[in-house]
C-alpha cells in the first residue's frame, strides 16, 4: 500500500549530500515505498534543507527492525549528552 504517512521533524545539525556538507533544517520520516531498498515498504528518512533546493538531501531507507535499532542507538547517544561531560 501507499501509506502517505509522513512525520516532519525540525532539526539543527549538518548532513553530507552529493554536493558536500550542508546545514539541515528538517527531516521527513515516513513508512512507504523505497526507491532503492529491496522491500515493498521501508522506514524512510529524508534529511533536508529546503532553502538549498531539492538536491540538498540525505536519504536513508531502513527495514523496520533496523529503524528501531537506529532509534534506540540515537536515544542512547542523545541520553549520553546529559550523562557525560560537555
Amino acid at each position: 500500500m501507499c501509506t502517505y504517512y509522513t512525520d516532519h521533524v525540525a532539526l539543527e545539525g549538518s548532513g553530507k549530500g552529493p554536493q558536500g556538507w550542508f546545514s539541515l533544517g528538517e527531516a521527513s520520516v515516513y513508512y512507504d515505498h523505497p526507491v532503492h531498498a529491496p522491500a515493498e515498504h521501508t522506514v524512510n528518512i529524508d534529511f533536508l534543507n529546503r532553502s538549498l533546493g531539492p538536491s540538498a538531501r540525505v536519504a536513508v531507507e531502513l527495514d523496520p527492525a533496523s529503524a528501531r535499532e537506529l532509534a534506540r542507538a540515537l536515544l542512547a547517544a542523545a541520553d549520553s549528552a546529559g550523562a557525560l561531560p560537555a
Partner: peptide, 13 residues
C-alpha cells in the same frame, strides 16, 4: 531535480 529528490521535496511540502 532527480525524480527521487523531487518526490522528497513534494512530500516535505
Amino acid at each position: 531535480a532527480s525524480p527521487d529528490d523531487a518526490a522528497a521535496a513534494a512530500r516535505a511540502q
